[in-house]
Measured scan of single mutants.
Amino acid sequence: TRVETATETAWISLVTALHLVLGLSAVLGLLLLRWQFPAHYRRLRHALW
């Protein structure tokens, strides 16, 4: 049971790290898009909202 718990903890930390990385890359990508294509971003936002 001790090994299982350790594996579970490792998986949880791995998944958390993955989610953090994905979230950060998504935010960075959005910022980059907004910085590179302001007109396109505004049009996209206008279409979405």
Rank of each mutant, 00 (worst) to 15 (best):
R2G: 09
I12N: 04
T9R: 11
S25L: 05
L44S: 07
L28K: 06
E4K: 11
L24A: 06
L32K: 00
V3M: 07
L33T: 06
T16S: 08
R2H: 13
E4M: 14
T16G: 03
R34N: 05
W11Q: 00
T9Q: 10
L28Q: 01
L28Y: 07
R2K: 13
L28C: 05
A26I: 09
A10F: 04
E8G: 03
A17S: 07
V3R: 04
L44C: 12
W11C: 07
R2S: 12
L22Q: 05
S25C: 14
L31D: 06
L20M: 10
R42K: 14
H19C: 05
F37W: 10
A10W: 07
L44Q: 00
T9F: 09
E8W: 01
H46W: 00
G23M: 12
A17D: 04
S13D: 07
V3E: 03
G23Q: 06
P38K: 14
L28T: 02
I12F: 04
Y41E: 08
A6S: 14
R43V: 08
L31A: 14
R42W: 14
A10L: 01
L22S: 12
T16N: 07
T5W: 00
R2L: 12
F37M: 09
L48E: 13
V15G: 04
L33D: 00
H19D: 05
T5F: 01
A26P: 01
R43H: 00
F37R: 02
T1A: 13
V15P: 00
V15L: 10
R34E: 07
I12P: 04
W49L: 02
A47P: 09
G29L: 14
W35A: 15
R34A: 03
L30P: 06
L18A: 02
L30I: 12
H19F: 01
A17E: 06
W49S: 00
G23H: 00
H19Y: 07
E4H: 14
P38Q: 15
V21C: 12
L31S: 11
L24C: 08
L48T: 09
L44A: 14
T9V: 13
F37T: 08
F37S: 08
L14W: 01
H46R: 08
V3W: 01
L14T: 01
L32R: 06
L30E: 03
R42P: 01
E8P: 08
A6E: 06
L18H: 07
T16L: 05
R45Q: 07
R34Y: 09
R43F: 10
S13L: 13
L33Y: 00
A10G: 10
L33W: 14
Q36V: 15
R34C: 11
G23Y: 07
T5C: 05
H40W: 05
L28F: 08
A39G: 15
R42S: 09
L20P: 05
Q36W: 15
R42E: 12
E8M: 00
R34V: 00
V15K: 00
A17R: 04
G29N: 04
A26R: 02
Q36T: 15
G29T: 13
L30N: 04
L31G: 04
L14Y: 02
H40T: 08
R2I: 11
E8A: 01
T7W: 13
L44N: 08
T7I: 11
H19K: 06
W11D: 00
L22Y: 03
A47L: 09
R2D: 10
Q36H: 15
L14M: 12
L44E: 00
T7D: 08
G29Y: 05
L33M: 15
L22E: 07
L14A: 02
V21A: 13
A26D: 06
R45F: 00
T16V: 14
L24N: 02
T5V: 04
P38L: 12
F37A: 09
T7E: 02
L48C: 09
A17T: 07
L28S: 06
L18Q: 05
L28W: 01
W11T: 00
A6W: 07
L24F: 10
R34P: 01
W35H: 15
L18W: 11
L48Q: 01
R45V: 13
R43W: 08
H40Q: 13
L31T: 13
T5R: 04
P38S: 15
R45W: 01
L24R: 01
L31C: 15
A6Q: 11
V21Y: 04
V15S: 03
A6T: 09
L18F: 12
V27F: 12
A47G: 10
L44I: 13
H46F: 06
Q36Y: 15
I12H: 03
A47S: 09
A6D: 04
L33F: 01
R45S: 00
T16K: 02
R42V: 11
V3Y: 03
S13P: 03
I12T: 09
R34M: 00
L44W: 10
V15Q: 02
R2N: 10
H46P: 07
G23C: 12
G29C: 14
V3I: 13
W35K: 15
F37Q: 00
L28R: 06
R43T: 12
A26Q: 00
I12G: 03
R42A: 11
A47Y: 09
L14H: 06
L44Y: 03
A39K: 15
S25V: 10
R43C: 15
W49A: 13
A17V: 09
G29D: 08
